[in-house]
Every structure is written in C-alpha cells, then in structure tokens.
Lab assay of single mutants.
Amino acid sequence: MAAGGDHGSPDSYRSPLASRYASPEMCFVFSDRYKFRTWRQLWLWLAEAEQTLGLPITDEQIQEMKSNLENIDFKMAAEEEKRLRHDVMAHVHTFGHCCPKAAGIIHLGATSCYVGDNTDLIILRNALDLLLPKLARVISRLADFAKERASLPTLGFTHFQPAQLTTVGKRCCLWIQDLCMDLQNLKRVRDDLRFRGVKGTTGTQASFLQLFEGDDHKVEQLDKMVTEKAGFKRAFIITGQTYTRKVDIEVLSVLASLGASVHKICTDIRLLANLKEMEEPFEKQQIGSSAMPYKRNPMRSERCCSLARHLMTLVMDPLQTASVQWFERTLDDSANRRICLAEAFLTADTILNTLQNISEGLVVYPKVIERRIRQELPFMATENIIMAMVKAGGSRQDCHEKIRVLSQQAASVVKQEGGDNDLIERIQVDAYFSPIHSQLDHLLDPSSFTGRASQQVQRFLEEEVYPLLKPYESVMKVKAELCL
C-alpha cells in the first residue's frame, strides 16, 4: 500500500493539533497551500530580480507567473513527485505547466533550498508574528487579574506546605514575570531571523556568478533584492546548502521555554482548584465526569500541561538535527523538520489560546482563602504575639514557653481530632496574655502579614508589564474561544 493518505478522510490519521486544537490561522501558515504558494512567490521574486539585473526574462513571463501564483494543481504535483521522487522539481514542473512561456526560467540558477529553506524562514517569521500578540493578550488578562487582587491576602506555599502570606495578585505576578520573559525572547528570536537568500547549491553562489558572467556586484544585488522582497532586513552571508540548523534550535528553545512557563502556571491553577481557592472557567453544560456528576475538573489547565510537556520535548529534535548536518548538509534534517517545526508552533498556539481562555474567566473564592488563612495564621502570628507581650512588660522566655504549650495543644486538636485551630481562643482565655487581649485582632490582621506584596504588584505592572504590552494595544480586544 502506498504511503500517505487522504487526510480529510475519517479513515486516515490526522494530527489532533490540526484537527482538534490549533487555530485556523496557525494551521494555514503550515498548510501545503501556504507552503507551495510561497515557493511560487519566491520563484517570481527571483525572476523579477534577475530581470532587473539584466537576464533575458520578459515582462510577459513575469506576468504569467504572477497570474498563476494561486493556480496550484495539487493532484498534478503529487503525481509528479511520485514520478520524480523530488518535491521541488515536482512543483517546478507543475508551475511550468500553467506558465508555459515562463517554464524555462522558473528556478533559474537556484537549488531546492532556495524555495525550501527560504519558505521555512518566512513561515517561522509569520508563525512567530501570530504567537506574539496571543502571548501579549494572556499577559494582559493576567495583569488585569493581578491588579484587581493585588491586596487580597492568601496563604503562600513553599514545598506545598503553608508559608508566609502573600497576595493573590502577587502570586499571579510570578506567572506574568515568566511570560514577559517569554514574550521578550519570542520577539528577540523573531527579529534575529535572517533570510537564507540566493546562495546556490553549497552556499557559494557559483551558479549565479556564472549567470551574471562573473559580476560579483550583481550577485550581491540579486541576494539583497530577493531578501528585501521577502520582507527581511538581512540575509546570511555564510550558508551551506541550507541555512544553519542552529536557527531551528533557537526558535524551538524559546517555544519550549514558553511551554515550561505555561505548565507551571496551569499546575498552580490545578492545585488551587483542589484547594477550592480558584477555578478555571466551567461552562453551564460542561460535564466533569461521566460517573461523578459533582466533579469540576480543571480540564483546560490539564490540557495545557499535557501539550506543554510535548512542546518542551520537541527542542531535542533540532538539537540532534543540527549535530548531524555533515559538511554542507545531509538530508537527516528533512523529514524531522517537516514534523517538529509545525508541531512546535501548533502546540504553542494551542496552549496560548487555551491559557487566554482560562485567564479571561478565572474565578476566585475569597471566603475559602480566608478560612485557610484562619487555619494557619495563628501559628504564624506567634512571633508577633511574643513581641507584643514583651512590649507590655512580659518575659520573652516565659511567653515563648506559654505559646509553645498552647500551640501544641491547638495542633493536637487540628491533627488528632480534625478540629479547627483554636490557638487564639486559648490565648484569649489565658490570664497571662490579658495585657494584649485587646491587640489580638490587630495582630491577626492578614494584611499585616503580606509585606509589600501589593506595592510590588503595582510597581511591576507599571514599570515592566504595561510598557512591554504597549506595541500590542491594537490587538488586545480579541477574545479566545474554545470549541473543545
């Protein structure tokens, strides 16, 4: 049975990233139509530049190519590739079939990587351009969430054990800070992308030097003109047959890092959902379990974690691919890159769409948070109580021993009897502590235990987050809708 299948058929496997999760716009960027249309555009740009620099290419040939950029006979191309065992030459023939007058000058002087690699770089750039505003929107939604809850005390956790208090907004800023680093890295790697350009079979530009009869300047002009037509500021000066596969490492490393950030955020949300302090959106008709109707599973956060793990592992592909590119190139890269580049971007696209949807509907339960604080705060307040007693004339050592005994009794009630923490009640009825009984409410005010959390939130948002989001103001209103 021949390899390949009808990918629109229910009898043929289709990647869930495309069929179930990723956005239509990201799927289109990695589609065959987008790819092969870009090949034709690159052939047109090459012909236009070659004509401008004096090669015998007519206006009629150029116009014929322009008129057929979208006229792609995919069936013919597939048949040609089956016959020739070469995808680029299959599309040269297919393009030439609908451009008979231009057929002889299509791909003039070029090698397969002229269309293959340059198209990949265009796709990487455009895919990054799709991700950047999506990530900015996630940051914006979380920034709104953090600002609104900047002063809401909550129990902090280290080692997932109760620690000092923080605020809900401050905790959210930990998430935002990681995503801001990801946004900066995505922008950097996007701006650092260079075009492969017009380089020939081993990167020496020998074929173009021959076409222009040894004119170095025209060869350099050709490279520059096509690079500018493709919208790049610069091209690699040095290439082998391909652009260095280190570029793929750079791009997928940034995406993998984004995956790590999203995994951490969504894990926190899942843990908070278990504590009943916070939940992701839950639709009115949504079913959490087929057997347990009360369940409210954090399905979206779980999906993000599941896909983020996949995204983090994909960076190993370009690392290994770059390491086995012998001399000017081997074909070890080809099949692998067809999979890992598309999957990385479709996965990143999915987790950003999902995280935006989550961040637009996060639900906080202040009463649950308050109750958990009441359970733990008495123990945390013991040092403040000791200091207040010393100020009232008591002995630190005597007070410490009193607190120690009462704390152990209260802990026994919590752990052995399943009761509430009654340390404060014990202190309130103990005559030894009568000098500070009137101060206990103040000493137990949760806001006095959150330090500068709310001020940190305000400063972080104003100095770091809002300036970073400013270039994306025009796209901030787009909502994230999930079908599944």
Rank of each mutant, 00 (worst) to 15 (best):
R141N: 10
Q241F: 04
F212D: 04
S140E: 14
D117F: 02
G259C: 10
S23N: 12
A110H: 02
A235R: 08
I139M: 10
K391V: 14
K295A: 00
K187A: 13
A322P: 03
F95N: 07
R309W: 05
L346M: 14
G104K: 14
D120C: 07
V254S: 10
I351L: 14
L444D: 04
D398C: 11
K35H: 12
E213A: 14
S447C: 15
Y13S: 12
S19P: 06
L352C: 08
Q409N: 09
T227A: 14
C98N: 13
Y21M: 00
M89K: 01
D349T: 08
L406Q: 03
A392D: 07
T313Q: 09
V315Q: 08
E343Q: 10
C483V: 14
K295F: 03
D398E: 13
P298N: 06
S257G: 09
S323A: 12
A3D: 14
R459I: 11
G214R: 10
K199M: 00
I72H: 07
R338K: 06
I351N: 05
T166G: 08
R137V: 15
P446I: 09
F379Q: 07
T119E: 07
R452Q: 08
R190V: 09
A103K: 13
L469V: 15
F345V: 10
H442L: 12
C399I: 10
F433W: 06
C173Q: 03
I358W: 04
G231E: 08
T52F: 08
G361P: 10
R337Y: 02
P318C: 08
E481N: 15
L355W: 07
R14W: 10
D398K: 12
A256M: 08
D73K: 08
I106S: 01
A78T: 13
V368E: 06
E464R: 03
G361V: 08
Q63N: 14
Q428R: 11
R37C: 09
L352H: 04
L130K: 12
V138M: 15
M312E: 06
L108T: 11
Q161E: 00
A392H: 11
R40P: 02
L130C: 12
L135P: 02
L271F: 07
D445N: 11
E417M: 11
G197H: 02
Q286E: 03
T321C: 12
F232H: 00
R83I: 10
F460A: 01
L331Y: 02
G203Q: 01
Q456H: 08
T313H: 06
Y34C: 12
P16S: 15
L211G: 01
R270D: 05
K276E: 06
I403N: 07
A102D: 01
P366L: 06
I57M: 03
K479A: 15
L183A: 09
W326K: 00
L482Y: 06
I237L: 10
